[in-house]
Design a protein around this nucleic acid. Sequence first.
DNA 1: TGGTACAATGACATCGATGTTATAATAAAA
DNA 2: TTTTATTATAACATCGATGTCATTGTACCA
Lengths: 348, 348
Amino acid sequence: MTTTIYDVAAKAGVSPKTVSRVINGSALVKEETRERVLEAIRLLDYHPNAVAKSLKQKVTYNIGYVVPYGSDFVFRDPGQMEQLKGASDVINAADYNLILSVPSTAREALLEVNRLLKHKKVDGLILYAMEGVEPLAREFEEKGLKYVSLGKCYPEQEYNFVEVDSPSGGYLATRFLLNLGHYRIGFICEAPQFLVPAKESMIKGCIRAYEEAKIEFPHDLVLEGDYSVEFGEYAVGRFLQKNPRPTAIFCASDPMAWGVLRGLRKKGLVPGRDIDVLGGDDLPFTKSIEPGLSAVNSKLYELGAQAARMLLDYIRNSREEGEKGIPGRYLQSELVVRETTNGPSGKR
Amino acid sequence: MTTTIYDVAAKAGVSPKTVSRVINGSALVKEETRERVLEAIRLLDYHPNAVAKSLKQKVTYNIGYVVPYGSDFVFRDPGQMEQLKGASDVINAADYNLILSVPSTAREALLEVNRLLKHKKVDGLILYAMEGVEPLAREFEEKGLKYVSLGKCYPEQEYNFVEVDSPSGGYLATRFLLNLGHYRIGFICEAPQFLVPAKESMIKGCIRAYEEAKIEFPHDLVLEGDYSVEFGEYAVGRFLQKNPRPTAIFCASDPMAWGVLRGLRKKGLVPGRDIDVLGGDDLPFTKSIEPGLSAVNSKLYELGAQAARMLLDYIRNSREEGEKGIPGRYLQSELVVRETTNGPSGKR
DNA sequence: TGGTACAATGACATCGATGTTATAATAAAA
DNA sequence: TTTTATTATAACATCGATGTCATTGTACCA
């Protein structure tokens, strides 16, 4: 049936071990033998069986990417895709495979993770941190299973995570808007059910910026959004009822900002002239929107890429037993100014 | 180290084979023994090694999902994500794993596919059909490797594909617009570099609808787009220069239609009043856009799901050698009418 | 010329499960 | 009660690679 290393060995008149040496580029093979073996491999169209190799070497070259119970959420959120893409690129470049798993309930997520990690289908896991992953993360650590999470899984987590520093992004955005002359700013921040409990909301940074500027923070202008375009649109209505109404709106995610743009237009308001708008991701799509949406760049691609790099590092260099993993990292955001932030009306 | 089936056997005082029987739910185990074994499994927190099982059974329970050299394209196109999601849901429900691979060049794609299929890392492959996959598909067939393609890989392909019947979608859309009273319709169809050579363009169906209505087809109003929002916006400018200018625009994809909406607005035109617009995918995002975009529903989720189902079928029921696979299937589109199609101006 | 190093190769065991086949224990049939 | 089925279990081989260790061949040095 399938050709094995034994077939090749027989054809080349050597032992299987020698064929193995040739495949793995060992220097301990005479040039002439090597060529004979390579010829046999070519003739038989032989491909080593990765499963057998895995069994012996206890390495699968598979990385699991698990997003617990977020199926709909995940596939519709372009921010999620950026993270996945970052991870995918790094994993593929390292000749590993990415096993994508998007269970739809917490229970399924648990089963899934077991199937992958404990049954040795993957060498490690990238875990998207959401409400409810804490027990999973704890268990991994207890059992010495390798993972890196996208975001902290619980407040005291010190190892194996990469996280966007949301408060610093909020601070950056707010300071910028305050400097433009805004003081009534509407905030759409992250609804808790979409945030890991451990993650600090951007709003902390926003408040800090107000404090530094010694301006009173407009607590009446804070909404909690679900990352959807729809929510952004809805929020516009809410904000316009306020008195005085905000002169700028800052959203924790780009899709909500897209919704805000749409909502404003529906009300006959011009973003960037009547009301300033600032997004929270700087997704690729945001670059091509009209008018050009200013945004905090949350480095989502980089987030995924770094997580993958950390995990690969961890997998390949973990000699000592009982080491805790790799210290967590925070990514700092940047501000990208485009056309929707020009200062309060009249100033333009 | 890791607990194996031998450890469990020893603890329970039975043979490894009996443990295996318990794990696999064989009826040939006395109730009392079963319980003893289960207890041992629990105590030792034993999890069977999937790799060892794979080696023996020659089944990996992995499905590869390969999108040849389309990294950027893929992750930015929400239509792609719908297909991926459809496949992912089916694959996970069947207790298989999805290995996602998005190589960025044709050469990498080849290596990738070899790594996956020939090295036995997956039981089968879902292959996104694009320019250049034909040789791959041919080789798979020659070697009896299992795959199903999303779209035909070459014109005469009869097996192992699922495809959206684009011409029928084009026909549906065009007939609808003609019935509304349009006769100058602008078409943005698929640029050839993004289409498998084997796939028929929707434009064929559009022309057919014109023929049936005995109206002359406006050949001057056909553009080829790259699926991007930007192109849709650009196309608006092109169309408005035509004389007489079109009263409706039909796009092969939703993102291009989103671009058209934006482009129209920038020119001060109102979609659905001044010019009708029709999208080509009916993506989730399209449901929530403003104004509600009418669209041909291309069943992209279903496309991915069907491909996965076909492949799983093929994998599980392929007893006979040399069978060609599963006959290809075409999915028919539907029309979803929302707010952007009200007939030529004045008629409203 | 014999000894020592090192290069090149192979024999055999091993990874951890399951398939095959033999055998022990029990139940049903004669 | 003996024979025959049937149930329950185990011994051993096997999947296809690689690791360990032994062995052979060759070159270099004393």
